[in-house]
Amino acid sequence: MTHTNLFLRIRSWLVMLIATVMLQATAGIVYGDGHGNSRVPMPSTETAKGEKCVEPEDVMKRKHMEFILHQRDKTMHEGIRTKQYSLKNCVNCHADPQTQSVLGKDGFCESCHAYAAVSIDCFSCHTDSPEEQDAAVSGTVFGSIFDSNITK
């Protein structure tokens, strides 16, 4: 009896240890300085325009796809054209000033998607360059309805 208990205890310790190591490893990759010992090219997340994103960064990292896909249906079917989660607006801020694009090897969207092995077809129709008249860029104050989601 007791040695089964001991075995269980050791196993749970092992699981925790492995989990901790793995967590640290992923954290090291995701939050690394960009030159870590990764074999895959690190995503390039330089953003020239705007001081902050339309939601806190950690929320954006995890939820940006939900925001834009939701916005897509709102705009298409109900004509709602708020800026905050508009794809146009993402591109306006996140396009590289040099290449005028969010795509390409160091492009904001593409480099991270390549890193995470995500492929999207959005830019076969949507332009990857910012709009010509640039007054369109708009950052939005954080918070609003998503505040409750931010607590981890």
């Binding site: 076969s124 129709c125 949507h126 332009t127």
Partner: peptide, 13 residues
């Protein structure tokens, strides 16, 4: 395959 779309009018194959 379409390139150089207008921001207001996405179009694709």
């Amino acid at each position: 395959t379409i390139t150089d779309q207008k921001a207001d009018a996405p179009r694709g194959k």
